[in-house]
């Protein structure tokens, strides 16, 4: 995947790598037949990345517009939000949209890590 976003400034990069407060979490779900739609939430882009990872047993549940709004408002990354909206508009299917979103988030996290110099993640390690 080619880079579509300019690297974030240092302050934004730190926010991209950090969790948001619980009150600003984004609710997500998962379609797990036959259990149904199970609830969850993500509090960081890292968690969103893991939520989107392909799984033979289930489908991740995210709303692209909700995700864009969360990225913009809670994380504070307006450029990334624009790209998320672009995926919503262009992806031929929801699952393909999830795949593209996964790549986009992974790329953005990589950019942020480069900017902050491979600094610690929330867990004190690195991806």
């Amino acid at each position: 995947m080619t880079t579509r976003l300019a690297p974030p400034p240092h302050e934004l990069a730190a926010r991209i790598l950090a969790p948001v407060p619980f009150a600003h979490r984004m609710k997500v779900g998962r379609l797990v037949p036959p259990v149904g739609l199970t609830a969850g939430d993500v509090r960081s882009l890292e968690e969103l990345l893991r939520h989107l990872e392909p799984d033979q047993r289930s489908l991740p549940g995210v709303g692209f517009e909700r995700t864009a709004a969360w990225v913009e408002d809670a994380v504070g990354d307006r450029d990334l939000a624009v790209s998320v909206r672009g995926i919503a508009a262009e992806a031929p299917s929801y699952v393909e949209g999830c795949r593209r979103l996964l790549e986009l988030i992974a790329e953005r996290l990589g950019q942020a890590r480069e900017v902050v110099g491979g600094g610690p993640t929330r867990e004190g390690g690195s991806l």
Partner: peptide, 9 residues
């Protein structure tokens, strides 16, 4: 809510 747990039902 729309899109909270899944994009559609």
């Amino acid at each position: 809510e729309h899109g909270e747990l899944f994009p559609f039902y």
